[in-house]
């Protein structure tokens, strides 16, 4: 790997200033599980890495009202095992357990996963149905954005060159939401990820949140499929039900799947149809027992 310097700021403001001063020659470093691989292979080169782990308190995980606030240097393992996350966001804990492998989870961070914007990511898809928000800091202050507004393309985000993600804010689902996440693939990274969260009232789907990731450059919500589910009686949503078929068909149409090393467009659209129905059936089978 080409030599680089290590910058270790102690505050978020110092990190933002260092990014601004470097004018593109520096990158933020947290777990490094994706960044360092790209640097080892020569795909990326930076003169300086800015270690956000030297900012004290940035690894904290804490409750703020109905949300759990996950600091930018919290690792996947820390999120997975955190008592607050397990209690209030059990599906996030479950999905974090499935990220990469144990060694990557022990080092890599949730925030880093989002910021690297690798399209084949489980958390980026799941957090869309939690309607998570992100705290972003720059030299002139901070702002809050929806998680869906972060990633703009493969390995591209809306963050300014002097901005950093400082926290991921994840609101717990309301009581009675039935949620599930499915992933599929034969590679190290997922080929497909689908997240579903259904609010059920009096046996009817009162609200539906569906997200699809990995098959296209950026994970997305599936609003046409969500519209079909709203108002459906759940006892009619059994295997092969016409509404489920329609939801799955619309999901594959709206996937904007692209061909890559994981497979072609037809293959991915087929996966979307199969796994959308399975994911919804798994979510519905949870019978109000929380989100996992």
């Amino acid at each position: 790997m080409r030599p680089f310097r290590l910058h270790e700021p102690t505050t978020v403001q110092e990190a933002a200033s260092a990014l601004a001063d470097a004018g593109g020659g520096a990158a933020l470093y947290a777990g490094g599980t994706e960044l360092l691989l790209a640097m080892k292979s020569g795909l990326l080169a930076y003169d300086t890495l800015i270690n956000v782990k030297s900012i004290s308190g940035l690894d904290a995980i804490a409750a703020d009202g109905n949300s759990i606030v996950i600091g930018a240097s919290a690792t996947h393992s820390a999120v997975e095992h955190d008592p607050l996350v397990r209690d209030r966001l059990p599906l996030l804990s479950e999905v974090e357990h499935g990220v990469a492998n144990l060694r990557v989870r022990n080092v890599g961070t949730l925030a880093g996963n989002l910021c690297f914007a690798e399209p084949h990511s489980d958390p980026a898809t799941l957090l869309l149905v939690y309607e998570a928000e992100l705290d972003v800091a720059g030299p002139s202050g901070s702002r809050r954005i929806a998680v869906g507004d972060l990633q703009t393309g493969s390995y591209e985000t809306s963050l300014g060159p002097d901005e950093l993600l400082t926290a991921v804010r994840v609101p717990a689902f309301q009581a009675g939401v039935r949620a599930a996440y499915s992933k599929f693939g034969y590679h190290h990274r997922p080929t497909l990820g689908i997240a579903a969260a259904l609010a059920v009232e009096d046996g009817v789907v009162a609200d539906a949140r569906l997200a699809l990731g990995c098959v296209s450059p950026v994970a997305r919500r599936l609003s046409r499929s969500e519209d079909v589910l709203r108002g459906e009686r759940i006892d009619a949503l059994t295997e092969g039900a016409s509404a489920l078929r329609e939801v799955s068909r619309l999901a594959s149409e709206d996937a904007d799947a692209v061909e890559d090393m994981h497979g072609g467009v037809d293959y991915k659209e087929h996966l979307v149809r199969v796994f959308m129905e399975r994911t919804l059936l798994r979510a519905l089978a949870k019978n109000g027992g929380g989100d996992a």
Partner: peptide, 25 residues
């Protein structure tokens, strides 16, 4: 050399990590 195989596993504060990629510092 890309954190997939586990041959380079060492324990850092008791937790497995891939020493091929984790920086020495």
């Amino acid at each position: 050399d890309v954190q997939v195989c586990g041959a380079c596993t060492v324990l850092l504060d008791g937790a497995p990590v891939s020493s091929c990629t984790v920086p020495a510092f």
